[in-house]
Design a binder for these strands. Structure first.
Length: 1121
RNA sequence: AGUCCCAUAGCUCAGUUGGUUAGAGCGCUACACUGAUAAUGUAGAGGUCCGCAGUUCAAGUCUGCGUGGGACUACCA
């Protein structure tokens, strides 16, 4: 007969290694999918990591969450396929390759061909896949790594093109321009990622100018003109005077107060009237001059007097016109040179009126667009003014773009020269150097410009309402991320800028003629091949680059006969219907579109597996999970593409997890050296403890302060306790040959304690199932842990120990084994999603003997089955009372220094109500044995014996008495003992207040016993116990006998006897001990498995010193029978 | 700058629909216990529930305004 495996020591990493080997040898993961064939699917999407970096500890966290719910759903009977994926395109890959090869973007096409460059990217990006796969295995993340989707593969790209073409055909793709960071020195746009490189923002001193924009008099503005001092101007401040020729509007804040001020221009000394924000008057006019009269001005630019003459809101200024400041060029379209309302305008800087140059500021552009105002783009791609800006044509707008050797000796920057020009024309109110932080190109170190750049856009704003509506169908964990962060983002949605000016990515499949009149969007390899055929026939190309591709053939080989990447697609010239050449738009598409296409592209939809999507077999996802940083990344692109192309949601449930910080709450980074190595952690602590710790320590969406000591605690506290409990079970079950072959002991015949723990267990199954079902793994883990350590180990096992080692193999003992076995195997099942290795081991160790289950891994078994009828709330409540009362008695013993081994005669408990009495009767025996007291007395007629206390039930009385609540509560606590017994007897009492009488019932208050005069009493909440601490001779002897048993047990152990060995005991006669031992001989013998106990005068040979205290001692010898 | 998250004991975290002694584990101190023993029990110390204001009979809990930490998005005349 097989035995339960007994362990010497808990070694979690070793368990994981062993189980991992077992999984691999028996292909358990595949089995867990195959064995659920035909069951309802649970659809999971893996968000693709980029394999060009090494995995960190946060990946263990993110993947543990994914794994937990996939395993849980498998145990719940679903078939859970999960396909791994790799995100392979994008800037980080390019940057990595450039760093490695020691090149920059400018070298591409010169030092290195695009082909070579992209080849290097393709190799670099998959470099660490082995490391990733290794981590995936070691942490126990089950995902299909054999056939992952890879975003650079032609099949994947073809699906992406198909989706794009859908959008194109729906008219949702257009070309426009936006204001983006642009580096004239490098000749390229910069991504926000590049702008966020350390050191990109530098403090620089620029010439700032406050310009005077002359107000035009018309119906709208006439109210400003009634009291003037010279001409009337708006004041607007800028740190980039070079943008002033491009000014087409001014911005004001709707609710900001503006004032009209009479003063003088400090350069020309001409009288002026200016408008600026009221709060900023102090910034531009000296307080010292506030008392001066306008007539006092000395024309010296100092102490310029001023006078505030009117005040109005920004909203009153809306639409007012002004004269163009520097009229080199007029905007071609739109009604320019008006005052607009801008929500971004503040009074923290400048004048509260913002100069708007829509070509060179994103905010400017946005406001201008809304108001239909055109832009003036007067700077070319090198950063030089165009010829139309006659004064400064061909000059760099930023001094830094000019090489030092090309600078004339008397060089003045454009900003300075424009300022001088304004001063001369009475248009400069103030000019000064201003230090601020400004972004620089990380490659050339030169300042960037915000610049209009051509881009392709997806018109996401066209489906905004649908996106919002669909979002409401998604279950977000936590909810606030969905409604708040994500919801608000959708409310303020902009069109999706799809273009990236890069090399390594999916090309935009749009070809246009040079005059932009004709255009085609390609949606498949087959279509491209056909278009190429036409182009070859028309003489546009010599041969068809897709000539070897065989349409409809889905083989891997066929899809490797060409490459969709640059430069190959760039070489393709197509022919338009009218016979003109069409070239591809050079941009690549945003990599986020790659990953957002993953639900379809992972299956090469619609070219293969069409039914998976169209028949909703693998779409939408039931569940996805990623970091909260993906809210506007992957979560958005999945959602957007699903809504745009299919008008559905892409996922039903989404968990967004927080960050993993170091133990001090700092972000982990290689630079700071505080990043935890996932491999070392897993190796040292094992994946189970690591996962358990991460999941139970903080909610997934809260940041986790990752502390290795926390894992140690989990190891000791949870796994250690569970392991001890199992070992305890195995030890005795092996002795008794328990293999669960007997029928279940009927529920009615099980003792109270077994029923209790089964009730607790089933409550646990119910709660844990609900928690997992609700995507709350933290709650689930904590519940399991609480049950295991507190209820199972520290209460059930502790109280039941004797049942396992004492007595015959009878029904009671079998019930104990069955109950403990059931608890252990159920814990294993509930915990398996979180701690897959250890729990599988536990499952197999138990099942190998019992053979209760036919499957050979817990991950093939079902989730613990709920036996609702075992849940007995009253029983759970009873046991809580028992635990409460026991702990109170133990506390009293402690206070009196009475060891638990010393039996006591009696305890008393006041009976609160009939329910309490019934409950107490059921648990009486339990309490008595736990606290080692012989009897319990119920105090029912308590009047006169107990001193009672009464307290108001605020929840009940609060609503009734409102403002008087405090007074009533005070009166209740003042009730005398007589009044309390009145209340108890009559169930109600009347209280007299100054102006009214109120009636209280027993339901309105809580009555508890405070004291029993003459007894040792403990009171806690509504419970009270009293303990009789008088010791009779008999009790003392029993106490001694227990001490003796304790010593003898230790000697047995010291002598190396087996737990089951029977012994004979010889004791040297001792006057202090003889009587006590003699009177309790049977008890001592049965406890120590002694067949014989005899007294002798002197023991020869090996003996132990049996010492109770200094006076009470003797020698003893033990012999195995 | 906007949006969102977090803030409770030295540390990590619970805290139900607002209800009157704010809890657990770890750590610390002391004492016990010892056929689960690298386990366990009991007790003690340790709190301005981040601050201010408000709603309410009653606020750790609800509202507003701040402070500190974090994330994302955007970027400023």
């Amino acid at each position: 007969m097989s035995k339960y495996k007994e362990y010497k020591q808990l070694d979690l990493p070793a368990v994981a290694d062993e189980v991992l080997k077992y999984w691999e040898e028996n292909d358990i993961f595949q089995e867990s999918i195959d064995s659920h064939e035909g069951n309802k699917p649970f659809v999971f999407y893996e968000g693709p990591p980029s394999a060009n970096g090494l995995p960190g500890i946060h990946h263990v966290m993110a993947r543990a969450i994914k794994d937990i719910f996939c395993r849980y759903k498998t145990q719940k009977g679903f078939q859970v396929k999960r396909k791994a994926g790799w995100d392979t395109h994008g800037l980080p890959v390019e940057l990595g390759v450039e760093k490695e090869l020691g090149i920059t973007k400018e070298d591409i096409g010169k030092k290195i061909s695009v082909e070579e460059y992209n080849k290097a990217c393709r190799e670099a990006v998959m470099r660490y896949t082995d490391v990733w796969n290794d981590l995936t295995k070691k942490m126990g993340y089950w995902v299909d790594m054999e056939t992952p989707y890879v975003t650079y593969e032609n099949k994947y790209i073809e699906s992406v093109w198909h989706l794009l073409k859908q959008l194109y055909d729906k008219g949702l793709i257009y070309k426009g321009y936006t204001i983006q960071p642009y580096s004239p020195a490098a000749g390229t746009g910069l991504s926000s990622h590049e702008l966020n490189q350390p050191g990109a923002y530098k403090n620089v001193k620029d010439t700032s100018a406050t310009a005077q924009f002359k107000v035009t008099k018309d119906d709208k503005s006439s109210f400003l003109f009634d009291d003037l001092h010279g001409d009337l101007f708006f004041l607007a401040w800028t740190t980039t005077p070079w943008t002033l020729p491009s000014n087409t509007a001014l911005g004001v804040g709707k609710n900001i107060d503006y004032v009209k001020v009479k003063s003088f221009n400090k350069y020309t000394h001409e009288p002026i009237t200016v408008i600026l924000a009221k709060d900023l008057v102090g910034k531009w006019f000296s307080a010292k001059a506030s008392d001066l009269k306008l007539s006092d001005y000395k024309n010296d630019g100092k102490n310029i007097p001023y006078e505030i003459v009117a005040q109005f809101k920004g909203s009153e200024l809306e639409g007012i016109r002004y004269e163009q400041l520097l009229s080199y060029v007029q905007p071609e379209e739109g009604d320019a040179f008006r005052v607009l309302i801008g929500d971004f305008v503040t009074t923290s800087d400048g004048t509260g009126i913002v100069h708007l140059a829509p070509s060179y500021g994103a905010d400017d552009y946005r406001v201008a667009q809304i108001n239909g105002i055109g832009a003036l783009h007067l700077v070319n791609n090198q950063g030089k003014f165009k010829a139309k800006v006659t004064d400064f044509a061909g000059e760099y707008v930023k001094e830094q773009y000019l090489k030092d050797e090309d600078k004339p000796a008397d060089y003045k920057s454009i900003d300075v020269r424009i300022s001088i020009k304004l001063k001369k024309e009475n248009r400069a109110f103030d000019v000064q150097k201003y230090e601020h932080s400004y972004p620089h190109c990380w490659r050339t170190d030169k300042p960037i410009l915000y610049f209009p750049l051509d881009s392709w856009f997806i018109k996401t704003t066209a489906v905004k309402e649908k996106l919002i509506a669909n979002n409401k169908k998604i279950n977000w964990k936590p909810e606030s991320t969905g409604s708040g962060r994500f919801g608000n983002w959708l409310e303020n949605l902009q069109d999706w800028n799809l273009s990236r000016s890069r090399y390594w990515g999916i090309p935009i499949p749009i070809w246009t003629t040079e005059d932009k009149e004709e255009q085609i969007c390609v949606g498949s390899a087959e279509q491209l091949r056909a278009e190429c055929e036409k182009a070859v026939a028309a003489g546009m190309m010599d041969k068809n680059p897709l000539g070897d591709f065989e349409p409809q053939n889905m083989s891997k080989e066929n899809y490797e006969t060409f490459d969709f990447h640059r430069p190959f697609v760039d070489d393709i010239v197509l022919v338009s219907p009218s016979g003109k050449a069409m070239k591809r738009e050079t941009d690549l598409i945003d990599v986020w579109f790659d990953s957002g296409s993953m639900p379809y592209a992972q299956w090469h939809y619609p070219f293969e597996n069409k039914q998976l999507i169209d028949e909703n077999k693998f779409y939408p996802a039931d569940f996805i999970a990623e970091g909260v940083d993906q809210t506007r990344g992957w979560f958005f692109t999945l959602h957007a593409i699903a809504t745009l192309c299919f008008d559905t949601i892409a996922y039903k449930n989404v968990v967004s997890n927080g960050l993993v910080l170091d133990k001090n709450g700092q972000k982990m980074s290689k630079r700071l050296g505080n990043a935890a190595d996932p491999f070392e952690t897993l190796k040292k602590y094992g994946p189970d403890a690591t996962r358990w710790y991460m999941i139970t320590n903080a909610q997934p969406w809260d940041n986790l302060k990752f502390d290795l000591e926390g894992i140690t605690e989990v190891q000791r506290k949870f796994f250690g306790t569970l392991y001890n409990t199992y070992n305890f079970f195995a030890l005795y079950a092996n002795i008794d040959n328990f293999s669960f072959e007997e029928a279940h002991v009927p529920y009615e015949k099980k003792p109270e304690i077994d029923r209790w723990v089964l009730s607790k267990l089933n409550s646990l199954v119910k709660d844990v199932d609900a928690a997992f079902g609700d995507y709350e793994p933290t709650k689930a883990g904590r519940l399991i842990q609480e049950f295991t350590t507190d209820h199972l180990s520290n209460w059930y096992v502790r109280l039941c120990r004797r049942r396992f080692w004492k007595g015959d193999y009878n029904e009671d003992k079998i019930s104990a084994y069955q109950t403990l076995y059931t608890c252990l195997i159920t814990i294993a099942k509930l915990s398996a999603p979180i701690a897959p290795f250890f729990m599988d081991q536990l499952f197999k160790d138990l099942n190998v003997v019992s053979g209760k289950e036919t499957v050979n891994s817990i991950h093939l078994s079902d989730f613990g089955k709920l036996k609702e009828k075992y849940i007995d709330e009253d029983l759970e409540q009873r046991m809580e009372i028992a635990q409460r009362l026991s702990s109170m008695v133990l506390a009293l013993r402690k206070k009196e220094s009475l060891k638990v081994r010393q039996p006591l005669q009696k305890m008393m408990v006041p009976i609160l109500d009939p329910t309490f009495k019934r409950q107490l009767q059921d648990i009486e025996a339990l309490i008595l044995s736990e606290v080692n007291v012989k009897e319990i007395e119920y105090l029912e007629e308590t009047a006169g014996i107990l001193v009672k206390k009464v307290k108001a039930d605020f929840k009940k009385l609060g609503p009734k008495f409102g403002k008087d609540m405090k007074q009533v509560a005070g009166a209740i606590s003042q009730l005398s003992q007589d009044q309390i017994s009145d209340l108890e007897n009559n169930d109600k009492i009347e209280l007299q207040f100054s102006d009214k009488t109120i009636e209280l019932t027993t339901a309105d208050v809580e009555i508890s016993s405070e004291d029993i005069p003459g007894w040792l009493v403990a009171a806690e909440g509504k419970y009270t116990v009293a303990l009789d601490v008088t010791l009779s001779e008999e009790l003392i002897e029993e106490g001694v006998a227990r001490e003796v048993v304790n010593r003898l047990q230790n000697f047995r152990k010291e002598a190396g006897f087996e737990v089951t060995d029977k012994i004979n005991i010889s004791l040297e006669t001792s006057s202090e001990l003889n009587e006590a031992i003699q009177n309790n001989k049977n008890y001592i013998c049965s406890e120590t498995l002694a067949e014989n106990l005899s007294f002798v005068d002197k023991i020869e040979g090996e003996k132990f010193l049996l010492k109770i205290d200094n006076e009470t001692k003797t020698y003893v010898s033990l012999k195995k029978v």
